[in-house]
Design a protein around this nucleic acid. Structure first.
Lengths: 319, 319
DNA sequence: CCCATTAGGCAAGATTCGTTCCTAAAGAAA
DNA sequence: TTTCTTTAGGAACGAATCTTGCCTAATGGG
């Protein structure tokens, strides 16, 4: 029965949208007898999806959390929300899950109907910045295009703009996407140069269509993340800075986003805030947000900017 | 035919993880004959999932984008990534899809295995701030708990802290969650006061377990978003402020996140930046990030903080 | 030209399904 | 307590469906 499978999916979908359906309700929705619904529930259970049931007058069926995730049946709006959420997560809003988010995104975008993809693009989620990040933004489309090519072992052609600004056409076998610091990198085999290369994704402009499939070769190193970070000089920031703040550690920790740096107490009234920056000017301005007196250690280059800001604020205050 | 349905799901799952499977590969994975795989592919197609096939030596099956989204089959890591992404989206990182994200999140969390839920919580995504937002954070758990109660028409008991700080125990029929400004509100029928009430979600501390189901009553107004905004004085910020900046508009616009405010040119060298704030102290510090001289209009209360910052930066610079 | 691949008809036998009955048990409300 | 609603599940039967094996076509790449 093709109908049986489709009905099981619809049943799963109903149980996901709502909680507590009675057997007769489900039977009407699915256009079968209540006995068949009971059979179907039994089927779902034996597939590993825990359908809890409460008997009695206010009883009903509900889907619980099992050992593994059941197939998610999303409506259009929810699918858009998921895609948008994954895009921002892949952009580095939450550190540590960028690669996974990208994988899930590639999976979703592969099957996302076109009209939904347009809606997702319209929301332009990549314009949402992470504080302190004024690095180059990566286009979500580029990101998923490359991720899909990696997954499917499809050759990739793209224009690459190197740091001098010169563009070259590349033809590569893409293998892995790595998020490091605040950038995305592509590890690929360059077929012209016949060697492994690491490309910055924000400098890639893919050409369509993607090429034919290739048979994967062994990666140059077991731990690809390690491989990339050994070859790419990315600190999360260009320079580290330590700031002594004249306020309790707890107070500062509450003000500072977790990923912006670490806060360690010195004594009751003082703590050390360790962070980093690309640009000493913005770094200095950020320190104003701490809301307490501070002094900068080991980083003389910030000092002139502090003085500049002091003057600027004084001028703005009308002194 | 329990096996048939399970196999169809597994087939769908395989087609989602990868692109281009040959019939024999699939047959081995699914432990059936290639002929059955062909039947299954035919079945998926008649269910509306477009399985594209390319014939020939380099041929294979792949899942394309259809008219509607197929059931998503996520592995553990991907599920965590989706949950995290939805949480941040519900937190207002991307404006316009908060409610939908929350709905999708409720759907996902209902069936999310416990060990995954722990991982999601460990990532604590709600600590990621939007710049300029230091408003009260809402716990993602609270948010999804309430959303689930709304969806399932379950009574809710919670402690509510009003603006004076006094806590009362409430017993309500929850109906809708509304995101307005940068806050979440709950529209509910208060069973003790026998009237509609709007609660700020960041002041709610739910008590478990949730109560029995109730039969929904007609909402107090057609457009619930309208209803809430008419009754709740939410400006995006408490106070508006206009700042004259001595730099070209284009330069400032590039530095400022789009949602933080609007930038309008005055002349070649000057522009006006309109924004708002809850707290004049942090407002003043933000202005330091503009990277140019500025003066504040119409908002004298910011001035002392500017002076304070001037002194603070001067002290930090060692003057 | 050859090979690997998808496509699909047909038939046989086994399996499964949906339904109609029935009874049991459990919880909530009157 | 009684009654009503709800889930639970056994038995049986006819109908529908599935899996498999075997066959032939068609297609695209090397």
């Amino acid at each position: 029965m093709l109908e049986t499978s489709a009905r099981l999916l619809r049943l799963l979908s109903l149980l996901q949208t709502h909680r507590d359906w009675t057997g007769t309700e489900l039977a009407e929705r699915l256009d079968v007898t209540p006995r068949t619904v009971r059979n179907d529930v039994e089927r779902l259970r034996s597939l590993g999806y825990p359908v809890h049931a409460t008997r009695g007058a206010a009883g009903g069926y509900r889907l619980g959390a099992g050992a593994s995730l059941p197939p998610l049946l999303l409506d259009d709006e929810e699918a858009v929300a998921v895609a948008v959420g994954l895009r921002t997560a892949a952009g580095g809003t939450v550190s540590g899950i960028e690669e996974t988010s990208l994988r899930a995104l590639a999976k979703l975008e592969q099957v996302l109907p076109n009209h939904l993809r347009r809606r997702v693009n319209a929301l332009q989620t990549y314009t949402v910045p992470v504080p302190g990040q004024e690095g180059p933004r990566v286009d979500a489309d580029v990101l998923t295009t490359i991720a899909a090519a990696c997954r499917d072992h499809e050759r990739l052609r793209f224009d690459y703009r190197d740091h001098s600004g010169a563009a070259t056409l590349r033809n590569v076998e893409p293998y892995r996407m790595v998020h490091r610091g605040r950038r995305w990198y592509l590890v690929a085999w360059d077929t012209q140069r016949e060697d492994w290369r690491i490309f910055r994704v924000d400098r890639i402009a893919p050409r369509t269509p993607s090429g034919p499939r290739f048979t994967p070769r062994p990666l140059p190193e077991e731990d690809i993340a390690e491989y990339v970070s050994a070859r790419v000089s990315v600190a999360p920031w260009r320079t580290r800075v330590r700031v002594t703040v004249h306020a309790p550690a707890a107070e500062i920790a509450a003000r500072v986003p977790a990923f912006a740096g670490s806060v360690e107490p010195v004594d009751e009234e003082t703590c050390v805030f360790t962070t980093g920056y690309d640009n000493p000017e913005t770094m200095a301005a950020w320190l104003g947000l701490l809301g307490a007196d501070f002094s900068v250690q080991d980083t003389p280059e910030v000092i002139p900017h502090l003085r500049e800001l002091a003057d600027r604020f004084a001028r703005a205050a009308g002194d």
